[in-house]
């Protein structure tokens, strides 16, 4: 059995440190975000490719950013502003190329397995239970790493459903003195950082950086 792989899609060599720094600076557009803008742009591009049902959205997002970095290296500057608009233009080309591209295959054994898989000769059910337990542990650890006010906000924001949830959020926004929209953005960032933290924890590369508050 064969499946398409991420590695086969990578056509260009990785960026040098210098080229990557130049890309970060261009994305920041004069305001040093310490890499936050890059991470946010990558997240948006991954989501874009994923919504377009591409099989490897992460690879396509990286491909997009690599092409922009190469253009910066060749031309020295990109006139299109804001940088996000140019990113989308390049991403669209990458998407069209990917749609035309014939899928390439590798044996299924070579495909990277999902993180958080328990090792050892356990039965399938036991293995699944072990994975779930490990993920829950990771989630608890990541929640503990949040700042107390961020943890409280996330709990309060995502608790309940429907009307109760809406009322709770309205009260929360009033208490914090911010709009519902701003509250939603803040909560989404906290949740996003948790998701990344849990993934890292499960893949054994645990690092945690809370969202900028």
């Amino acid at each position: 059995m064969y499946v398409a792989t991420q590695e086969l899609l990578r056509e260009e060599p990785r960026l040098t440190q210098f080229a990557f720094g130049r890309l970060l600076a261009w994305l920041d557009d004069g305001v040093d975000s310490e890499g936050e803008t890059y991470l946010e742009m990558r997240r948006r591009l991954v989501s874009y490719f994923d919504r377009r049902n591409r099989q490897f959205p992460d690879e396509l997002a990286d491909e997009t950013l690599n092409r922009i970095a190469r253009t910066l290296g060749e031309c020295g500057a990109i006139a299109v502003t804001p940088p996000a608009r140019y990113c989308y233009a390049v991403a669209r080309f990458v998407l069209l190329e990917d749609l035309r591209r014939k899928p390439r295959y590798l044996p299924v054994e070579a495909v990277r397995i999902e993180p958080c898989v328990a090792s050892g000769p356990a039965s399938a059910a036991g293995e699944q239970a072990s994975i779930r337990e490990q993920r829950l542990e990771c989630l608890d650890r990541c929640l503990e790493k949040l700042k107390p006010e961020q943890r409280d906000l996330a709990i309060e924001y995502y608790r309940d459903a429907k009307r109760t949830r809406i009322d709770r959020r309205r009260d929360l926004a009033i208490r914090l003195g911010i709009t519902m929209n701003a509250l939603g953005i803040r909560a989404s960032r906290i949740r996003g950082s948790l998701e990344v933290c849990v993934d890292d924890c499960c893949s054994g590369t645990e690092r945690f950086q809370g969202p900028a508050s």
Binding site: D152, I155, E156, L172, R175, L176
Partner: peptide, 10 residues
């Protein structure tokens, strides 16, 4: 996890 935790206003 959120449902398990006690509500605490930020």
């Amino acid at each position: 996890a959120v449902d398990r935790m006690p509500a605490k206003a930020p």
